[in-house]
Computed example of a mutant assay.
Amino acid sequence: MTLSDVGVPGQLIDVVNGGDVHPDGRLLSVAEIQQAYRDLVHSRNRDVASTLNAPATGPDRPATPHTSRAPGNTAPHTLEGTDTATPHMSPPLAVDAPHTSPQPHDLHPAATLPALPTLDQAPDQAGQRRPTDNAAGADAVARDWLAVVAAHSGAGASCVALALADGFDAAGRACRLIDVAHPARSGLVAAATAELGNDPTGAWRRGSRHLSTLYRRAAAEAPGSWPDAAAEAATVVDLGLLAPANIGRLLDTRPTVIVVCRVTVPGLRAAEQLLAELDGTRVLLAAVGPGRWPGEVAASIGDRVRWLRDRRQLVTVPEDRHLQVTGPTNSPLPKSVSAAGRELLGLIDAAHSDIADAPPNPTAQSAPRKRGKTR
């Protein structure tokens, strides 16, 4: 029999051939189906209530169900107006654990650079602790080092530090370049032409790049001391974006500091602020961007940036699109960036020789500039 053969309620159906029918073969009416459904729901609710009210069988199951109660109402919160509602209750603890915030170790580590190695200290006459001399403070940033710092995030300090190391190499001078960034955020991870393994302490990973030796942190934990200094090798340390406490520590030893910023209004503002905090140190400014500054940038510079520019202590590092995409690699830096590194090194050599008006190092030839472009 098909659906087209079904007639009025009460018609007898062939049970052998299937169909939802009464045991006597009569087709059920709508009212009878609804009543059967209510009976089924009530039976299921009684089974659920008896299961939840049973004694606890383990530590993960509560003795009584958790129910919400309205003020002055002792009955469980249920939907009104229907016989098919079930009590509103939380699932057993073994099924649904409470929602909690992730623990700190589950979060991605903050993008902050590690602190500098601790300075050695000795008591002064008043009993206060003070930094010792460079000879005694082996963990300090020595006065004859070149410290490259970023005025803001993404300034390009690693590229400038590598350009300085290549400048030493072009002059035939050995150099060690130290990157203090977390291993996952190192800007010089691909800059070495050959990997040399870890140093004897195991805290620093070494690589070679012509006459320069590159040092990167080997683990997430910050090393307790600097790598061993090679004889007759200059030291360039890439400090990146400094914490305020480490800025004060640079003022204790006063190395030569190269501040790196972008040629933008926010970048020059950040550089001005950092220069004010580094007041009293030997500072050069490396501005990454075009040779001719936009009018908005030139009009927004502060007194310290203007002072460095007027005394030719500011070097423009041209932007290179390929370098922006790849970052520093084991390939030579673009010629314009290498020339800026040699120009910085020439200014540093002149300052160390106490010849402020001396011409730059003969190897510090600037990159060819387009007509109408000035630094």
Rank of each mutant, 00 (worst) to 15 (best):
A218V: 05
A150H: 11
G10F: 08
A243Y: 00
P290M: 02
H322Y: 00
H352C: 10
T112H: 11
S208E: 11
P102A: 03
P200F: 09
L285F: 04
V21L: 05
P55R: 04
L27M: 12
H105N: 10
R46P: 00
A49W: 13
D20E: 06
R249W: 02
T363H: 13
A115S: 14
W293Q: 02
S353T: 13
D133P: 01
P65M: 09
C159T: 15
A138D: 04
E221V: 14
P255K: 04
L52C: 06
S158I: 07
P200H: 05
R38M: 10
P266R: 01
R206Q: 14
P62A: 02
P102F: 02
D228L: 14
Y215L: 09
P290I: 05
T193Q: 14
L250V: 07
G372T: 09
G58F: 03
L239D: 08
R321Q: 04
N134E: 15
Q313L: 14
R311Q: 14
E272D: 04
I258C: 03
R44I: 09
A115M: 07
A351K: 06
A339G: 03
H210K: 08
T374H: 13
Y215A: 04
G267A: 01
G187W: 11
S338Y: 00
E277H: 11
A220V: 06
A138S: 11
N330V: 00
D60K: 02
I301V: 15
N361E: 10
L28A: 05
R342C: 02
A111S: 08
D228T: 15
A271R: 07
R205H: 14
V259I: 05
R173V: 15
L250I: 09
D144N: 12
V337T: 12
L211R: 03
G19A: 03
P332Y: 05
A364S: 06
V265G: 01
L40W: 00
A85L: 05
V315A: 01
V260T: 12
N53I: 00
R311N: 15
L119I: 03
A286C: 03
L79G: 09
G127Q: 03
A358H: 05
G81C: 10
R321E: 06
G167R: 01
R46W: 03
P200T: 06
Q35D: 07
S331E: 15
L12P: 00
L284I: 05
R312S: 08
R26Q: 13
H88K: 13
T82E: 08
R46I: 11
R292W: 00
G58E: 15
Q103N: 01
L93G: 15
E232A: 13
P92E: 13
R176P: 01
G172P: 13
A126G: 08
A54C: 01
L177I: 11
A190T: 14
E221D: 12
V16K: 06
A233F: 13
S153G: 15
G291H: 12
I355F: 09
S353G: 10
P117N: 03
P255C: 04
P71M: 03
I301L: 11
P114Y: 07
P65D: 09
E80M: 08
R309M: 12
G291T: 10
S208K: 10
L119P: 01
E32T: 14
Q273D: 14
G280A: 02
Q34F: 12
N53Q: 08
V315I: 14
A54H: 05
V41T: 05
V325A: 09
L333R: 07
A350I: 02
S336C: 03
G341V: 07
V297Q: 02
R46A: 15
V48L: 15
P332Q: 06
